[in-house]
């Protein structure tokens, strides 16, 4: 039996011409992708791709059958959409949050989803911006709060929300309540891996470097680790989370708020279950920034 996954594999391989890239596009690893392709070729009874050194190319049979696969997958997607629209329990809203979104802001958006669309069932995941953008694009998530600026590639996006940030520094590093960036000398800034959101991360560090030429960065997995390093006197954390505190760590407002957390809600134009997505997103954006 030909499944939705078989169709996804066929189309992704035709587009990417590369097993690793196609696996990433489908959201699986390479072994099940290869296995799925072999199974599909057996079911269809002809070879769809020529596998060369590092390259994958459609065979004439593959070229001829690709449009049918596309149509079949589109029909299945339409079936999902129609089912969602008819669901008496209300639509399922799968919300993604970037790890930088303060817990309280993420909670506010999730709560707003529930009240803006009565009867909806909300599920929430946390993942890096690049992964969230991908998941919204492929329909695995309904919407996500991601860092700005990021490459959105065809997704719909709401306005940019600016959340104020605080510097968390080892106690006794600075003694004023409000600090200027240039005062944050000496210690590295705790940052998440650059690949999660290269443009946003570069903007953050380019702004920092304007005011603070030295000190460098240290890559951390999350704010929990960053906070711990600050407590140990090893790093400075810039956070939009108003509740992130620890003994031995001072919280300081940054003069003129030079490093706001820039967030946007993103969703897919074609996959949204909302009848009036712009109205819904406007209310959710309000929840994110409040």
């Amino acid at each position: 039996m030909i499944t939705e996954r078989h169709l996804q594999i066929f189309i992704a391989l035709a587009e990417e011409q590369h097993f690793g890239d196609a696996a990433r596009a489908v959201g699986i690893t390479q072994p099940p992708l290869s296995q799925g392709l072999r199974r599909l070729e057996a079911l269809i009874g002809s070879k769809l791709f020529e596998r060369g050194a590092g390259r994958v190319e459609l065979t004439p049979a593959g070229v001829a059958l690709l449009p049918y696969a596309r149509r079949a997958l589109t029909s299945i997607e339409e079936l999902h959409q129609a089912a969602i629209a008819r669901d008496p329990e209300g639509p399922e809203i799968r919300l993604g949050l970037a790890p930088e979104v303060p817990p309280s802001a993420g909670a506010a958006v999730a709560a707003a989803c529930g009240s803006v669309i009565p009867g909806s069932r909300v599920t929430v995941v946390t993942a890096p911006t690049s992964s969230l953008v991908n998941q919204v694009g492929t329909g695995r998530l309904t919407l996500a709060a991601v860092l700005h600026p990021a490459v959105l590639d065809g997704l719909e996006a709401g306005p940019v929300s600016l959340l104020p940030t605080w510097a968390l520094v080892p106690a006794a590093t600075v003694d004023t309540e409000v600090v200027a960036l240039r005062q944050l000398k000496g210690l590295p800034i705790a940052v998440r891996p650059r690949a999660e959101a290269p443009a946003a991360r570069d903007l953050f560090l380019d702004t920092f470097a304007l005011h603070r030429p030295d000190g460098g960065t240290v890559v951390v997995t999350d704010e929990r680790a960053g906070l711990a390093m600050a407590a140990a006197g090893q790093a400075i954390v810039v956070t939009a989370d108003p509740a992130l505190i620890a003994p031995g760590v001072g919280r300081h407002r940054l003069a003129d708020d030079p490093l706001p957390l820039r967030l946007r809600l993103v969703w897919s134009r074609t996959r949204t279950p909302f009848l009036r997505p712009n109205d819904v997103m406007a209310q959710l954006t309000e929840a994110l920034a409040s």
Binding site: S130, L152, P198
Partner: peptide, 16 residues
């Protein structure tokens, strides 16, 4: 082949 070009664009923060 595409993966290398795509990687360059992703790293630079652009759609290419």
């Amino acid at each position: 082949m595409n993966a290398r070009i795509r990687g360059i664009f992703e790293d630079a923060g652009v759609r290419g």
